[in-house]
Each structure stands twice: as structure tokens, then as C-alpha cells.
């Protein structure tokens, strides 16, 4: 094969792009042709030379490019740490706020007391026992019992009394009185029970006089 014909294949051979058959022919030719061996060496040297021909990267290249990109709205702006903090704190903050609102609203929910002069005995509600649990729907304090799987059954009057007495053993006399009042307050039906003396506390004055 003439040198001129095989030079193009040598070029591909130098680039690792010759087929196995072409590679075999090139190697055979190079073994017997000093001129083509020199040409092959120069071809390889050109490859090295071109990799050494580099431009330089200016120090402000990145800033300059990113400024242009931001001007064209091609680059999302980096958020500040404060924004990230607020964003990640939003969920727990919102949950805490919701819980606080829920607790406050349930505590301050208006009740249908005959006399606004007497408020509910909050002290007793702060110390709940099994017998003092309010049966009214929506009370946050009834939630754990519902979650535990036992439905909030409405106890009968005798049952409630028994529970109060049972728990009363741990309470002072004043506490017992408060707890008893609480039972009455949370079940308006008990207002019609004449045998409960404590009810008189909540009866309006005009009814007591009549």
C-alpha cells in the first residue's frame, strides 16, 4: 500500500479509532516505512501540543456569568439562612400555635351556667382522675381515653357518684366539694335533682326566694 493511502488510516490509528484489521495493516506498514513512522510520531505530538494550548480562566468569570444569568432570571436566587430557618421552623411553630389555640379555646368555651357569677371550678379540672373525666364531647381531656380505644361512655348518676367517692379518698374535703360541683356543672341534668344540696349554690337568687 502506498504511504499516501495509508496516512489517513494512521491518523485514525493514532486516535484509537482504527478497526482491528486497519490497525494490523498500519502496524505492518510502520514496521517497514521510516517515513510513516516519523509521520505517526508527529501526529501524536500534535495531540499533545493541542492539549497544552489553553486559554485562561479569569478570576471573575463565574461572578460575571452568574450576574448575567440572574439578570435574565436564569439562575434561582440563593435563599438566606434566615429564610431557610423560618421555612423549616414554620411547621412546628404552626403546630404549636394550633395546639395552644385549641387548649385555650376549649378552656374558655362558654358554658351554659345558670349564674355567670360562679365560674367553673378549674382547680378540679387540673387534677383529672378516672372519675372526674368530663363526658362532654370535644373536650381535650377526653381525647387520650378515646385514643386508647375505650369509647367515652356516659356514666350514670350513681356511677359518677361512686367514682367521686372512690377518688375522694385522696382529696382534701375542699377538693372533694369542688369535684362534686364539677360533676354537677358538667351534666346540666343534675340541676333538676333536688336531693343534691350543692345545686343551691348555682340557683339564682330569685328562685331560692320563691
Amino acid at each position: 500500500m502506498e504511504c499516501r493511502e495509508i496516512r489517513e488510516i494512521i491518523s485514525a490509528y493514532v486516535d484509537g479509532e482504527a478497526s482491528p484489521e486497519e490497525a494490523r495493516r498500519v502496524e505492518e506498514h510502520l514496521g517497514s516505512c521510516a517515513q510513516c513512522r516519523s509521520a505517526e510520531k508527529r501526529m501524536r505530538a500534535l495531540g499533545v501540543a493541542v492539549t497544552r494550548t489553553e486559554g485562561s480562566v479569569p478570576p471573575d468569570f463565574r461572578e460575571s456569568l452568574f450576574a448575567r444569568m440572574e439578570a435574565e432570571d436564569l439562575l434561582p436566587k440563593r435563599r438566606s439562612i434566615f429564610v431557610f430557618s423560618v421555612r423549616w421552623a414554620a411547621v412546628p411553630l404552626a403546630a404549636a400555635a394550633a395546639m395552644a389555640l385549641y387548649v385555650l379555646s376549649s378552656r374558655e368555651a362558654p358554658r351554659e351556667f345558670p349564674s355567670p357569677a360562679v365560674g367553673p371550678p378549674r382547680v378540679a379540672r387540673e387534677m383529672p382522675g378516672p372519675g372526674t373525666t368530663s363526658p362532654e364531647a370535644g373536650s381535650p381531656f377526653s381525647a387520650p381515653r378515646e385514643l386508647a380505644g375505650s369509647p367515652p361512655a356516659v356514666p350514670g348518676k350513681e356511677e359518677r357518684k361512686t367514682k367521686v367517692v372512690a377518688d375522694g379518698g385522696k382529696l382534701s374535703p375542699e377538693d372533694r366539694e369542688i369535684v362534686a360541683n364539677l360533676e354537677i356543672l358538667e351534666d346540666p341534668d343534675l340541676f333538676d335533682e333536688p336531693q343534691i344540696d350543692e345545686m343551691e349554690i348555682f340557683v339564682p337568687s330569685f328562685r331560692r326566694q320563691g
Binding site: 493541542v50 485562561s56 435574565e72
Partner: peptide
């Protein structure tokens, strides 16, 4: 940048062209 330099033969033009390349990619 190196490719643009080898193609244009000019450093300033290479920088300008390289910026344009990334803008076009974006």
C-alpha cells in the same frame, strides 16, 4: 473556555463566547 480559545484564537473572545455558551445552556 479552552475550547472557545482554541476555536477563536483570542482570549477575550473566548471568555465572551464561553459566557454565551453557558447562557445558551441555561
Amino acid at each position: 473556555i479552552h475550547f472557545c480559545y482554541r476555536m477563536t484564537g483570542d482570549q477575550a473572545r473566548a471568555e465572551e463566547a464561553a459566557q454565551e455558551v453557558f447562557l445558551r445552556i441555561a
